[in-house]
Write a protein that binds this DNA or RNA. Structure first.
Ligand SMILES: [Mn+2]
Ligand SMILES: [Mn+2]
Ligand SMILES: [Mn+2]
Ligand SMILES: [Mn+2]
Lengths: 230, 230
DNA sequence: ATAAATTTTTAGACAAATCTAAAAATTGGT
DNA sequence: ACCAATTTTTAGATTTGTCTAAAAATTTAT
């Protein structure tokens, strides 16, 4: 067991603290970019004053660097914690889809709860049961036990040129309406998509998927990730 | 969906409230027996004054009957809530043992967390995945979705007469030391036990299990449930 | 450079769940 | 029936995480 994992074990984090760390990570706090109080407040659906209070507490605990009026960045330890929560969230999502017949628009809400369960054995066994999956149902990468993960080579469908071909590998928007729309139009991860045409007027696309022609708006295309075929 | 299940859905219960309801049920609050403030405090590892506060809140919510200085009993709704938590707890315990290779002494701690996850679909799918089990790893019955469950025909091994035969169906003590002791001596649920002799001096038993003779103390026998063979 | 707008922090309050200490009610022994 | 012991409740304080309103710092615009 690494030295960092020992710290992880001793740290006792409340559910609220864990949610702050996770959201700061998603806002880019893993790099040295400073994350603003307001940005965190918006994501947490809370007030900036609450964020300030929590930032002080998390800095005290060694999870982030906080300078008044500047913003925060995660410490190395903070990144570790963030990755461990994201790992749990995404593994539970896979579990729900693979083992319990959940649809990909139902899993997020439940995973938000399950990600806070404290048991190292539990999540490692779930990982094993699932065969150590690399990606969650939305195409997002699952960090390994020691925090490693590969960001996939992907781009937005809306950034693909005419006549190019790609494989659908993820979604940017994970809202139920968007995912239901994809289901209705039989667009799923793994499908091959060819961009037939892009309309000058509104950037809407004509694509070939499942051997069928389909017209989709720019907004749809800008929320679908594909891996370009060379 | 029954009328009561509709109530269950609307009720939003905190983790602490759920734990109080569960413990009151286990103390016998499903009958009309009054449960004392002190008894609840002891089980909850909290102070009587805290129990009084919570009793008022839960009575306000319609989950229990509370009369000052008298004690509490669960309402019909309170019993429903208790059974739904116990159902979740025990199903998760089965899941951990059957699907994730947990041992029967490891499951309780994790189930204490998992029992509070809010998702009807989640627990119903776990139930289905497990093949609708009737008993948990410790031999305790699992309430069905609508709160029905059979208490098993069982008695303590220490209450069995000489020469009688029974099948081990449950444990009274679920502590790790006791369960580890049973593992070490290869005593498991489902095993047939014959009482060969009972020592007058200390009530220790000589039993036949797995075709081997074994001596166990009265304390061990008084924490093992068996179903008597006719 | 100064003023205006925005962001962030502070100060003080609140709800939930807990605690301690003291008061009130109940129970039990004689 | 009385006193003493026990149980239970009340009153007031504490911690966590949040809020509002006001003050302070920073950023943007003129
Ligand atoms: Mn998610
Ligand atoms: Mn996801
Ligand atoms: Mn248990
Ligand atoms: Mn059990």
């Amino acid at each position: 067991m690494t030295n960092k994992n020992v710290f992880l074990k001793k740290l006792c984090m409340t559910r609220s603290e864990e949610n702050y760390i996770k959201i700061i990570f998603h806002l880019g706090g893993n790099t040295s970019t400073l994350i603003s109080t307001n940005a965190i407040a918006e994501q947490m659906a809370t007030k900036p004053s609450s964020v300030t209070d929590m930032s002080k507490k998390l800095a005290e605990k060694g999870l982030l660097h906080y300078k008044r009026y500047q913003g925060v960045t995660l410490t190395e330890l903070g990144v570790k914690v963030a990755l461990s929560i994201i790992r749990k969230h995404r593994l539970w999502e896979v579990f729900l889809v693979e083992k319990l017949d959940f649809t990909w628009d139902e899993v997020h809400e439940v995973a938000e709860q399950l990600e806070h369960i404290k048991s190292e054995k539990l999540i490692d066994q779930i990982d094993a049961l699932l065969g150590y999956p690399k990606y969650d149902p939305h195409g997002d990468p699952i960090p390994s036990k020691d925090g490693e993960f590969l960001e996939r080579d992907k781009q937005l469908l809306s950034d693909m040129p005419k006549q190019s071909i790609g494989v659908c590998v993820g979604v940017k928007d994970t809202s139920t309406p968007f995912l239901k729309f994809l289901d209705k139009n039989q667009i799923a991860l793994g499908n091959t998509i060819k961009v037939l045409d892009i309309e000058d007027f509104d950037q809407s696309l004509s694509i070939l998927i499942n051997n069928k022609k389909l017209n989709i708006s720019h907004q749809i295309a800008s929320n679908l990730y594909v891996k370009k075929q060379n």
